[in-house]
Each structure stands twice: as structure tokens, then as C-alpha cells.
């Protein structure tokens, strides 16, 4: 039973990270119907920024908790700046072009950002210190869950609550929902669609950066390629849940996390990715709109 619980919680942690990244995919898709393939790179840049800040601050002998908080904050700001610029440079000029053009542009940006970090940093794996403190209160459960997992779960929950409130009740959130449903009509109602799109990219980048810092702390090392793998997995999560749907992205993340965790634990860790993608294939065959996705219904 303990083993099952351990796998369950491990899957939940993993799934939270996928969910955090998948939210960015799904929000951007909801607004401009584009799969932002460079989204994983934003997450990677978040992790790298955090590592740089940590390296600098640790040498000053600052309190580790303060260091990781500051590093996380700077990583979010940096990633947001990248996400914002990415949209302005690579997608905005292609707003009215065929969808394929923007998709190719996204893949190009993904490759560019990977190689840019490769050149600017290194191709080796870099150690990422885990500055999240050990909580004494979870000591009795230490055999099934670690402090880092708890922090990941709580952070993810908080981010999701904030995001839900933002989208449901604030003015910009309402503008986002309207824009995603009918862009022309939204602009006729006085919504500045460009601002909404930029904001969406910023929001997605922020959640990706938070995910990046958390998972880097959890795994303990990063390189320029982590964004690609995580990006693909999060993309699977977004499609699983139904692309364009926020609860879907979260659910998809968890389902994917559990699938991987249980497959690793009960079958073999070699098959982790096989199961993840097998799931994607099955979903695409039997319910192409995803678990919570709504199939496009158009009325003439």
C-alpha cells in the first residue's frame, strides 16, 4: 500500500509540473489557436535564470529560502520577458497568415532558443541545488513523500487558484475568455486584442517558469534540452485534457503524471515515455477533443 501511495504522490508531483507547463500551451492555443512549440524553452530559460541567480546569491551567504524565492521571482520576470518578446517577434507578424506558418515559426523559435542557451551556457548538465528546506512536520511520511514534493503540490495548487480567479473574475480574464471565443467580436466590444494576447503569453510564461524552478530543484540538474522533453510531455497533457481547456490541462497533467509514475513503478522505467505517448495515441483515436475538451460545434 505504501508503495502504491508513493507512486500515487510521485505521479501527482510530476503531474503538477506537467500541468503548470500545459496551462501555458492551452491558454495560448485558446486565444490564437497556435501550438506554441517554444513554450518548453521558456520553462528551460526559467530554470537557467534561477540557477544563475542562485549561484550569485549563494556566494553572498544569504538564507537559502530567501535565495530560492528571489531566484524564482527573477526567473518568472525573465521568462515573461522572453514569452512577450517571442510573441511579438515570431507570431504577431504571422497573425493573419495560414496556421502552418506560425507553427513552423514556433518550431524555429524552439530550436533557436535551445541553441542560444547552448551557446550562452553549456551543453553539459549543470547541478541545480535544492534549496527547499526539509519540513519537520512531514517527517512521519518521509518514506512516501518529500518536502520538495509538498512544495510543488502546494505551489501548483496556489497558482491554479490564482489563475482561476484571474480568468473568472477580473477584467483582463473576461477579455481573455471573450477573445478566445470570438476575436473580431471582442475587438468590436472595445477589447484590445493585442494586449490580451501579450498578457496570455506572459501568464503562460510565468507558470512555465515556476514549473521550471520547481522541477529543477526536484531533479537537481538542468541542461539546454530539458525544455524540449518537458514541453512535449506537457503538450501531451494539454491534448489529453482537451486543448484550450484550463481544467483539462490540469487533469491531463495529473493523468499523464500517474500513468508515468505507475508504469515506472510496476512495469519498468524504460517504458515511461512509451506509456505517455501510447496514452496520447489512444486519446487521439477515441476522443480527439480530449477528456474535457469541447468539440467544435458551428451553427450556420
Amino acid at each position: 500500500m505504501d508503495y502504491f501511495l508513493e507512486l500515487f504522490l510521485g505521479g501527482l508531483t510530476r503531474g503538477s509540473i506537467y500541468a503548470l507547463i500545459a496551462l501555458g500551451y492551452t491558454m495560448v492555443y485558446g486565444i490564437i489557436q497556435l501550438i506554441n512549440f517554444a513554450h518548453g524553452e521558456i520553462y528551460m530559460i526559467g530554470a537557467f535564470t534561477a540557477l544563475i541567480v542562485i549561484s550569485v546569491l549563494m556566494s553572498t551567504g544569504m538564507n537559502p529560502v530567501a535565495v530560492i524565492l528571489i531566484a524564482g521571482f527573477v526567473a518568472v520576470i525573465y521568462s515573461c520577458a522572453y514569452g512577450f518578446t517571442l510573441e511579438k517577434i515570431a507570431y504577431k507578424p504571422l497573425r493573419n497568415a495560414p496556421r502552418l506558418s506560425a507553427l513552423i515559426s514556433a518550431i524555429g523559435m524552439s530550436l533557436f532558443l535551445q541553441n542560444y542557451v547552448l551557446l550562452a551556457q553549456t551543453c553539459d548538465f549543470l547541478p541545480f541545488p535544492n534549496l527547499i528546506p526539509d519540513f519537520e512536520c512531514i517527517e512521519p511520511f518521509a518514506h512516501i513523500i518529500g518536502s520538495t514534493d509538498v512544495v510543488i503540490l502546494v505551489t501548483t495548487a496556489v497558482v491554479m487558484i490564482i489563475l482561476t480567479i484571474l480568468i473568472r473574475y477580473t477584467k483582463i480574464g473576461k477579455a481573455m475568455r471573450a477573445t478566445s471565443q470570438d476575436r473580431v467580436m471582442a475587438s468590436l466590444m472595445g477589447i484590445d486584442v493585442n494586449t490580451v494576447i501579450s498578457f496570455t503569453f506572459i501568464l503562460g510564461s510565468a507558470t512555465a517558469a515556476i514549473g521550471g524552478v520547481l522541477i529543477a530543484s526536484h531533479i537537481g540538474m538542468i541542461n539546454f534540452y530539458i525544455g524540449f522533453i518537458a514541453g512535449i510531455k506537457a503538450f501531451v497533457a494539454a491534448v489529453l485534457g482537451g486543448i484550450g481547456s484550463l481544467p483539462g490541462a490540469v487533469l491531463g497533467g495529473f493523468v499523464l503524471g500517474w500513468t508515468e509514475s505507475f508504469a515506472t513503478g510496476y512495469i519498468s522505467s524504460d517504458y515511461e515515455d512509451v506509456f505517455a505517448f501510447l496514452f496520447l495515441v489512444l486519446i487521439l483515436i477515441f476522443k480527439p477533443s480530449g477528456i474535457l475538451g469541447r468539440s467544435e460545434q458551428s451553427k450556420v
Binding site: 475568455r177 471573450a178 471565443q181 473580431v184 467580436m185 468590436l188 477589447i191 484590445d192 469541447r294
Partner: peptide, 24 residues
Amino acid sequence: LPPHKIASLGICQVPEGRHIFPHL
């Protein structure tokens, strides 16, 4: 001017096909 600026001056359109936000 972009559409949202024109809207803010006090022009509002009910477009052909109604364009209701379907999921609101």
C-alpha cells in the same frame, strides 16, 4: 484607428451572424 479604439469612441456594431460568445 484599431477597432478597440473606435469602439471606445462610442461606435458599436451588431455584426451579421450575431457573433454571440458561445461559451459565455
